[in-house]
Design a protein around this nucleic acid. Structure first.
Length: 432
RNA sequence: GUGGGCGUAGCUCAAUUGGUUAGAGCGCUGGACUGUGGCUCCAGAGGUUGGGGGUUCAAUUCCCCUCGCUCACCCCA
């Protein structure tokens, strides 16, 4: 019988990597606070209709990527493929329209999409997600973009490309759709197969096809910006102006359309060159009709989601700093089996003082315990043996310098206090 | 769903036109040093060569199937 492996497309985040995630979440949390976003925890599964209606029936996500299952009562549920729909659902359900508007919320957690895995793409992947619901002010769009850029800046990422576009609204979209179809109709036969299929269902997506032939054809095609209604046009100028004012460097990409149906007006992406084909590390935009599509009143909103795995990959490629991995402060070494009970007592005394400490549980030799101590990254080894027990002392060795001294057990609290303050100040104390 | 590449020790990789006991480095364990880690030296453990079938006197090597990983298309985080 062979061992059971993890299912395809999922992976374990082992300790050597998880501390980097911790750093990313800390930066995220701090930045969220600085921008006035509050954290919300949302369920990992929802009613299937939330996504099919919210995200859009004809999107790839809904058509072929959802993890959908029936629960024991026959309800159709789906593991969330994204977070905006849940955010808006929670906004409506919890009457956040009665809060001060917009409600600014953020969340982090795993999303699920059934796709062939490849670099930077997994079936379970983490996103950090920020949404501002209840305002149509262009400055909220600006803030959303600025917030994502600030997180990346604080993480030390550079060489990121920010692309922005406006995809219009229900007023101007049909106008553009028709103009686009009129333009493409004579050359329909020259488009790639998938684009021919898109022509009736979702012609907008033909604009971001990567097929060279399609690109040639669409180079001169009418873009969304040229067809914007007065309202959307003004909104888009305000967003661009606002981005200018806060010094955000972005470029306009007329081909950017995004794959989810709910986007209106502003759409944007942040791209990384270090990710291979999956180059989007962050995507977002405005979705003024999402609330209505899931049964609520008209409620404007804007937000973005960023992929945690992709951010970490990019940070690693760019040699970014992740802070310090967690290490032990003290490793307790028992000189002889007879002194083990006293060693364990010492271990808990140290831990109680808030110092990270560990001990050997495999019955290794004195020498081998020291080897473990050295490899553990601990700053100090505390030795407890017959001599120490007899004299009521403990031997403390600085594993960095090799110096050691035997101190009275009564002095240990003072030493631990020093250790703790050195830890808090994150600097070398005068220890030994 | 469709293509390409790759599966040998915990990790990174060797192994002649197919050739007999599948090796090395790192890591791990023990020892040299019986109360002291890192450096050095010595020793040891650890492999159904992803799995199954076929060709052959002989398969890690060639063929087929299958599973897995990976990259790309598609789409996106």
């Amino acid at each position: 019988m062979s061992i059971i492996n993890a299912p395809r497309g999922v992976r374990d985040i082992l300790p050597d990597e998880s501390w980097k995630w911790e750093y990313l979440f800390k930066v995220t949390r701090d930045t969220a606070r600085d921008f006035g976003y509050r954290e919300i925890h949302l369920p990992v599964f929802e009613h299937t209709e939330l996504f099919s209606r919210g995200v859009g029936e004809t999107t790839d996500v809904v058509e072929k990527e959802m993890y959908t299952f029936e629960d024991r009562a026959g309800r159709s549920l789906t593991l969330r493929p994204e977070l905006s729909a849940s955010m808006v659902r929670s906004y409506l359900e919890n009457r956040m329209d009665k809060w001060h508007q917009p409600a600014k919320l953020w969340s982090a957690g795993p999303m699920f999409r059934y796709e062939r895995p490849q670099k930077g793409r997994y079936r379970q992947f983490w996103q950090i997600d920020f949404e501002a619901i209840g305002s149509q002010d262009p400055y909220v769009d600006v803030e959303s973009i600025a917030l994502s850029l600030e997180i990346f800046r604080r993480l030390g990422l550079s060489k990121l490309e920010v692309v922005v576009n406006s995809v219009g609204c229900p007023v101007c979209r049909p106008v553009h759709r028709e103009a686009l179809q009129d333009f493409l109709r004579p050359r329909l036969g020259d488009l790639c197969e998938t684009c021919q299929g898109r022509f009736d269902r979702n012609p907008l997506r033909i604009l971001d096809c990567k097929n060279p032939a399609c690109r040639d054809i669409t180079d001169e095609a009418p873009d969304t910006i040229s067809c914007l209604c007065a309202d959307c046009s003004e909104h888009f100028s305000s967003v661009r102006l606002g981005l200018d004012r806060i010094g955000a460097v972005v470029s306009i990409d007329k081909r950017l359309v995004r794959g989810l149906d709910y986007y209106t007006k502003t759409a944007y992406e942040v791209l990384s060159g270090d990710l291979g084909a999956q180059n989007a590390v962050c995507g977002g935009g405005r979705y003024d009709n999402l609330a209505e599509s899931i049964g609520g009143p008209h409620t404007p909103g804007v937000g973005f989601a960023a992929g945690v795995e992709r951010i970490v990959l990019t940070m690693e490629d760019q040699g970014c700093n992740f802070g310090e991995p967690p290490v032990l402060d003290v490793y307790v070494v028992s000189a002889e089996p007879s002194s083990r009970d006293e060693s364990v007592a010492l271990l808990y005394e140290i831990r109680k003082a808030g110092i990270a400490a560990d001990i050997d549980y495999t019955g290794r030799s004195f020498k081998a315990q020291f080897k473990t101590a050295g490899g553990s990254g601990a700053s100090f080894a505390c030795v407890m043996g017959p001599d120490e027990i007899a004299s009521g002392s403990v031997t403390v060795k600085n594993l960095g310098t090799g110096e050691q001294q035997q101190i009275a057990r009564a002095e240990l609290p003072r030493l631990l206090a020093e250790l703790r303050s050195a830890k808090a100040g994150n600097q070398e104390g005068d220890l030994l």
